[in-house]
Amino acid sequence: MSERLLDVTDLSIEIETRSGPATIVAGIDLHVDKGETLGIVGESGCGKSLTMLSLLRLLPNKIRVAGGRAEFQGRDLLKLSRRELRQVRGGRIGFVFQDPMTSLNPVMKIGAQLSEPLIYHRDMSRADAWKRSGELLRLVGIPGAEERLHSYPHELSGGMRQRVMIAAGLACEPELLIADEPTTALDVTIQAQIVDLVKELRKRLGMSVVWITHDLALIAGLADRICVLYAGTVVEDAPVDQLFATPGHPYTRGLLASIPRVSGSTMARLSSIGGTPPEPGRRPSGCAFAPRCPLAQEVCRQNAPALQPMQGSSNAHRVACHFAGRLMSEAA
C-alpha cells in the first residue's frame, strides 16, 4: 500500500442558522495517497468545497468544523497553531479556486500576487520572487510571461487567469494541490487545456491532486480514484475504472447516466435524477438519498448505511448503500 498524504476521518461541518446549527457535512472519511489524484464529485451544495476549505480553515463566517480529524503528513491540520497553519497554506498545500476573476486581487499586479507565497514561505527577496514568478508563468504555459507579470487580472482572459491561479498554487511546489472546480467558469475548450496542464504538471512535479468537480466526465481521464459525495457524506469511493465499470451506488449510477455519450450510431436518451438534495437541517434520518432513490426500502429510511467494500469488487471499492450488492445483480 502506498504512503498516505492526507487522511480525513469523520469530519463534520455545521452552519449556524437562526434555529441552531445545521449539519452540512456529516462525518466524511477520505484519504489521498502520495502522488495520487483524487476526484471529488457531487452536486452543488453537497459539501465538497467546504470539506476542502475546512482543511486550511478557510471556511466562511458562520460555518465551522464540528468534529473529526484531518491528518496531513501525520499532523492534524485542524489542530495546528496559526503559525503552523500559515506554513501549510500555500507552502505544503496549494489551492486553486473556482472563479479566477474574483479570486485574484483586481488591484494587484499578477507578478505581485504570484510573488507572495515565495516571499512568505521561501524568504525570497522581492526581486528573486518576481523572477521566479516569471518562470512559474512559463511553467503554466503563458506566452510572454515576463511582460505578463506587470498585467492586472482584468487584462487577461479567463483561461489565462486560471493558469495564473494554478501557478500561484504551485509556487512553493506543494505536496498537495487542491483544485476547487477550477474549470467551471471557463469555456469548454479552455477546460480541456486546464485539465491537460494539471495532468502534465502533476507528472513533472510528482504531487498529489484533489480535484473537486460536479462533472464526472471531465475528470475521468485525470483522476486515479473518485469519491462521490451526496448531502455531506461519501456514498462511493472507488478507483476510476471500477467506478465507471461497476458503479455501486444508485446515485453514482444516476450521475453516470446523465453523462452524454454517443453509443454506436444513436444518441442514448439522457436521464436525470429526480428531485433535489436535502437542505442542511432537513436531513432525513436514514440514508440521505432515500427520498430520491428508486430502490429505497423501509431499511433505507431507518438506518444510514456505512461505507463498506462492495461485494464482488475489490477492497478499494467502497459503497454506502444497503443494496449495493443487489443492485449489481439486477443490473447484470
Binding site: P250, R253, G254, S271, S272, G274, G275, P291, R292, A331
Partner: peptide, 12 residues
Amino acid sequence: MAFVPMSVPVPD
C-alpha cells in the same frame, strides 16, 4: 436504467 422522479417534501 432510468430514475423515477420522486416527489420531494416541500417546505410546508
